[in-house]
Design a protein around this nucleic acid. Structure first.
Lengths: 211, 211
DNA sequence: GTCTATATATAGATAGAC
DNA sequence: GTCTATCTATATATAGAC
């Protein structure tokens, strides 16, 4: 239990090294799975990208599939907060719907926005395995709750209320965001920003700006 | 050029057998790719399901990837007409939006509705290969055009016009349909039918029924 | 936990007979 | 066009040393 026990040659504890290995494997898998697809990426490729060997994947996650589950967990926690934070940063009522759209479209991820591809990768995986569907359902629920909180506040600020409640509005808005992104990805011209924003405003009862 | 030339032992022409082989391979691939995923399905598995051997896949499509392209072509033609026909069959203005939703949700396909999974499979494929994006873009465009025709007619019938034009409405409606289906697949309770219909009506300026 | 080495399975693809 | 047989590459996974 003392600090001198269990140290690696580099002077770090085994616990630190373990945590780092896990984090590196998850990060490598997220990028590779998103970019090339789950099935197209080998365990060796993930391990190599993380500076480890495939044995580490089995030690930490029990196999390739365990890695995908870990990814799902990771993103589940992160996404709801990410959306809420992005929306909380925009107070101007006339442009907050624009902010919602641009935040969603210009997502982080670095290499050509693999985030949305991973999202669909996970969805396909969950749609085919009943055990995974629940985990993804929680993930979507988290996103909807974060959106609903925000939309409820927007409506209250106007002294109004959403037609079918904030949760319902969140479901519809999330759906519109997902579906517009799908079309935009293969045909950007088909989904101009102003059309997307107009659609979102319509679902949210947000007034058109004076322009 | 005579009928006696090129006959198989079963008494059919080689052309007939060729066409049948192609059709069987495409049908088998559609089902297997949708159910298990493109990468998880082997060329041998497709050929076997079609009552042929893997050599036939290479003779007809040049390989596994060619099969996926053929699928894409096939569905591109079929889907636009399918949607248009389903909508044309419903004349009652009060329930046509319900018909739109239920047609979309209760799709054909047989084995647990693999159609939507194939849709996402193709999307992921196209999102990663620029050469395929154009083909998928055409597919979506066809669906949008079919929807826009219908929505334009609905609006004209009311003596009104869609807020941003029929094409824009079709884009938004298609997006909402896709996004609602995504959420519904992993969590059916999160997307009740009446919420979906209410959202669609909102995008289409269709009045709520008297109830 | 991590590594090397390896077992085992199966993938996509091709050659050549029919 | 279709078949059998086969080549080659690579996958997932494990055993055992460190």
């Amino acid at each position: 239990m003392t600090e001198t026990q269990g140290r690696t040659p580099e002077g770090r504890t085994q616990g630190e090294r373990k945590a780092e290995t896990r984090a590196r494997l998850v990060a490598a898998a997220a990028e590779l799975f998103a970019r090339n697809g789950y099935h197209a990426v080998s365990t060796d490729a993930v391990a190599e990208a993380a500076g480890r060997t495939s044995g580490a994947v089995y030690a930490h996650f029990g196999g390739k599939e365990g890695l995908l589950w870990a990814l799902l967990d990771e993103w589940e926690r992160a996404t709801a907060r990410e959306i809420r934070d992005a929306l909380a940063a925009t107070d101007d009522p006339a442009h907050r719907v624009d902010a919602l759209w641009s935040t969603f479209v210009r997502r982080p991820g670095g290499h050509g926005d693999p985030g949305m591809l991973l999202e669909h990768e996970l969805w396909l995986y969950a749609a085919r395995r009943a055990e995974a569907a629940g985990a993804l359902a929680q993930r979507y629920q988290g996103a909807r709750t974060a959106l609903a909180d925000t939309f409820g506040a927007w409506a209250a600020e106007r002294g109004a209320h959403l037609p079918h409640g904030a949760d319902a509005a969140a479901t519809l808005v999330l759906a519109l965001l997902l579906g517009l992104e799908m079309q935009r990805r293969v045909d950007p011209a088909a989904v101009p920003d102003d059309l997307a924003v107009a659609g979102l405003r319509r679902l949210l009862d947000e007034p058109e700006p004076p322009d």
